[in-house]
Design a protein around this nucleic acid. Sequence first.
DNA 1: GTCTATATACAGATAGAC
DNA 2: GTCTATCTGTATATAGAC
Lengths: 206, 206
Amino acid sequence: MSTLVAPTPEAGSKPAQILEAAGKLFLDHGYGAVSMDAIAKTANVSKATLYAHFGSKDELFRAMVARECKGQTMAAVCEEARTLEMAEGLRLVARHFVTLILSPQALAGYRVVVGEAHRFPELASAFYDAGPARTMEQVTAFMVDLDRRGLLAIPDPQLAAEQFVGLIKSHTHLRFLLCLSERPTEEQLTRVVDGAVSLIIRGYAP
Amino acid sequence: MSTLVAPTPEAGSKPAQILEAAGKLFLDHGYGAVSMDAIAKTANVSKATLYAHFGSKDELFRAMVARECKGQTMAAVCEEARTLEMAEGLRLVARHFVTLILSPQALAGYRVVVGEAHRFPELASAFYDAGPARTMEQVTAFMVDLDRRGLLAIPDPQLAAEQFVGLIKSHTHLRFLLCLSERPTEEQLTRVVDGAVSLIIRGYAP
DNA sequence: GTCTATATACAGATAGAC
DNA sequence: GTCTATCTGTATATAGAC
C-alpha cells in the first residue's frame, strides 16, 4: 500500500510554492489540462527548478494529492458526538461530513482523482485510504458506540455507517461534482442532514 | 439547455466507427490521455476523415457522451415495480439501479464526465439531464405512488427518492469509481439492496 | 468522401551557465 | 539551487491528391 505521507516542505520554500501552485491548477483544471510551464509560472519558479524538486509531472501530481489529503478528518467530531444526546450527535457528524464533502477543495480533489483513477490506480487507492476509508472507520466506530449504549439496535455497524454517509451524500453530492451548483444553501444542508438523521433513527430504533 | 440528442449515424458507417472507437478510448483512458491519432487508428479511418465528420476533439467528445447516454433508463423498471408487492417493487428498483451504476460503461462515463466537469460544464449539465435527473424523476414518481397507495407515509417524495438512491450508491459506488473493485459480488449487491429497502420501509412506515 | 503527408504549436524534460 | 535556452517528441488540425 503506497502511503500518501510525503515530507511537508517548510513553508515559503520553493517546493512549498510549487506544491501550492500545482494544487491550485490541478484541482481547478484537471491533470491533463495543466502544463508544467503553467505550474512553474504560477509558482514564480523556473521549470528547471520545478524538475529539480519533482522528477516528473506524475510525481508532482502525487505529491499534490498527498498534500491536499491532510487535515480532512472526521475523528475529532466523532469523538465529540459521543458526548452528546443521540440525535444531536448524529446531526453534528452529518453536518460536519456534508460541509466537508461539499467544500470546493474536496470537490475539486474528488473530481481530479476520480477522473484519473484509470491512469493512476495506486493514487486512487492511496486517496481512498487517506480519506474516505478513514472517515468510514470513524463513523462505523460511532455506530458501534450507539449500539453499545443501547440507543439504537445496529446489527451491522459498517452497513449502517455506509448508509448514513450515503444518505448524506445522497443526490446533492453529484450535483456539486458536476458543477451544477456553486454553494450549498443553509436550507439544502438542513434538509439533507435532518432527513438522514431521522431516517437512521427510525430505521434502527431498538 | 443543450440537449444531448445527436443524430445517430447509420450502423457500419464511418461516423459510427469513429464514435465507437472514441467511446472505447475516451471511456477507458479519459479525455486528455487520448489523441485523435489513436481514435483514427482504432476506427480504421484516417485522421482527415475523422475531422471531416467531427470538427474538433471537443465536438467528438460531446457526440460520444451523447451516444453513451442513450438506453440507460429506469422508466420501464419503475413501471413494473408498481405492479408488485411493496418490498419486492423496491427491491426490483434498487437492484436495477445498482446494476446500472456499477456497470463498466456507466462507471467509465461517470469518471470521464466528472473529471472534465470543469472544462465542459455544459456537457456535465447535459449528462445530468439525460441520466441522473431522469432517474430521479422516475424514482420520485414511484415514491409518490407508494404514498398514494398508503403503503408508506412520504411527506417529501423527492427527498425520499434521493435518500433511496443515496442508500443504494452508498459507499460501494465510490469504491468502484476509484477502481478499487472490479465486479460486484452477488453478496455485495444483496447486502446493499436489502439494507436500503428495509431502511426505507422502516423509516417511512405509516 | 477518403486518403497521405505536412504545418504548426506546445508539451515534458534537460544542458549548461551562474 | 536556480536560472535561460533548448532538445525532442507528439498533439491538434489542415492542404492537396485521388
